[in-house]
Design a binder for these strands. Structure first.
Lengths: 338, 338
DNA sequence: ATGAAAGCGCTAACAC
DNA sequence: GTGTTAGCGCTTTCAT
């Protein structure tokens, strides 16, 4: 067994109360006893038991983070930021991989409830009523990252997707492109799906370009395969297309891959702009021009927000729209030159 | 406050012991009281407190996982497997991002000790004496994944790197290449550095090919940039090179990127084989031929091993070498054709 | 400055 | 079949 506070007390010939005070830096003892106790702690290799502490303090110093896909490149970067902020604030983080399954999400939420985590970060998914009920039951702060909830009043940290998509599209327009297509998400997805498609449409219309159903190929997911499969169909619907906006970097790179196979040169014959700025964006060929979301920062910010909410430094956190920017690499060409 | 077992007992007019029995599925009560208690649990929305449980059982049902770089693509995939196995076994996982810093690692280890985790998974790094001492103090099972320890007797789950490198190199040789270079790691790295370089050297020598210092460019890291910067220097040392083996996929893709910039066609003029089989391997262009490590599986296996060690289903876990394979994509050409 | 003692919410003997 | 009780390791009054 590990030594307990009792053992230390005995070894130092003081009461456990005194040891507790010293360990926790509370006032109420002489310098001398402090020295003595510290020597005992050292000698026995005493480590306070966080479980016992948690039981009494009602604070576990741990938070839970839920991702639809922990191994996704987007999640990993966000996680890094969250973990960093949590650690700096004195918290540990329990990761939960929901695989976008409602059942699993609920299971995890219950688990986190039993484990008495002090707060929750919920990433990249829509907050269902079921989840929200549990949040309320748990009575712990929750912050959303890379998502938001129209229905429930929950603080979020994200990028304005409508604006991001709008600007990505305008960037293409400024480069002289007139026939622009989009590889988009789903109409069912209120987070990354709808707003990005709306931003795209609005940018076209605002610039006097026509927009039709044929300008977008929709997808259930945002993965490489989705992008790869979307290019041919988009090309069929929009034969004159000289540039495209993909709702995610993975999709953009999928489209790039399809283009290579079809013998279409990027960016000479087809310009592509992505969304996310994942690490792969600069690794692919040609390096991908894309809308950069500050993923790690978003994780960090949401982590800090949660920590400060837990510590009670603020009652209501104000949501944060994080700045995005367009990172110019080499997948978009200037159509004016042609 | 959340309702406690006491509240349930009162509400159901039974003792807390009875509630405890029912909640834990132990024998000793009539069907009738069970129904009654379950209704009370339902009515109050009672959730057992895992902290109180942990204090008494000396089991927290959580494990700690340490990664040098959580957001790395390798780590993320391993993490997914670990999390999955842990969850299936009834455990939660606390992630720790050590950033390869000894100080941070020790800090995390101490934290995990205070939190009384039931076991530890240590990934992709060398086990320093300092760490090992803490492992022993903690008296919890530890399993290594994607690494191993020559000095200490710790079970591991990994791929035989020497063999992987050997076969990757022989693959190139079978394709008719005779001037083969390598972008390697560091001599200081006993895990991924040395064995992969030795495997490379051995393959060359076993096949009657000469090996010199000039055949390898060494690196401190295994990242995209390292690979990108290594290609020019390797090319200078080995001008006739027609193929190269990179000690990681990131490096391979970095080399590919450099090749594109230098106007060297892959695989027509230069064949490249990587190591890892990350998700990006099939996303880049041309898709990367590489040595596939079953990353998610390795995580899963190490997680299962740890769980079974914790549950005491086995005393000493036997380490596992996981099978690897060469995934043929399009970055290697047959030199016989030329 | 220091100690005794009452819990935190639960499990596990041990009684009845 | 059910209840009583003694802790698990700690923090925190309240005395002294």
């Amino acid at each position: 067994m590990n030594p307990t506070i009792k053992d230390v007390a005995k070894h130092a010939n003081v009461s456990i109360a005194t040891v507790s005070r010293i360990v926790n830096g509370l006032p109420g003892y002489s310098e001398e006893t402090k020295k003595k106790v510290q020597r005992s702690i050292e000698a026995l290799g005493y480590q306070p038991n966080a479980i016992a502490r948690g039981l009494i303090n009602k604070r576990t110093q741990t938070i839970g983070v839920l991702f639809p896909d922990v191994s996704g490149m987007l999640s990993s970067e966000v996680l890094e930021g969250v973990e960093n902020a949590a650690h700096d604030g004195g918290f540990s983080v329990i990761v939960c991989n929901t695989t976008s399954s409602g059942k699993r999400t609920v299971k995890y939420l219950r688990l986190l409830q039993e484990k008495r985590v002090d707060g929750i970060i919920f990433a990249s998914e829509d907050v269902k009523e079921e989840y929200y009920k549990i949040f309320q039951e748990m009575k712990v702060p929750v912050v959303l990252v890379s998502t938001a909830s129209p229905k429930y009043d929950l603080p979020f940290v994200r990028v304005n997707d409508f604006d991001g998509a709008f600007q990505a599209t305008e960037y293409l327009i400024r480069k002289g492109h007139k026939e622009i297509g989009m590889i988009g998400g789903s109409d069912e997805d209120p987070i990354a799906g709808v707003p990005r498609m709306q931003g795209f449409q609005k940018a076209l219309e605002s610039n006097g370009l026509s927009f039709t159903e044929n300008h977008i190929t929709k997808n259930e997911g945002y993965r490489f395969q989705n992008g790869k499969e979307s290019l041919p169909s988009l090309l069929k619907k929009l034969p004159g297309m000289t540039a495209l906006f993909a709702a995610s970097d993975e999709m953009a790179i999928g489209a790039m891959s399809a283009a290579h196979q079809l013998g279409i040169k990027v960016p000479e014959e087809l310009s592509i702009i992505g969304y996310d700025n994942l690490k792969i964006a600069e690794m692919c060929y040609p390096p991908l021009t894309t809308v950069s979301q500050p993923l790690k920062d978003m994780g960090q910010t949401s982590g800090e927000m949660l920590v400060s909410l837990i510590k009670g430094e603020q009652q209501e956190a104000k949501s944060r729209y994080m700045p995005f920017s367009i990172v110019e690499r080499q997948s978009v060409s200037d159509f004016h030159d042609k």
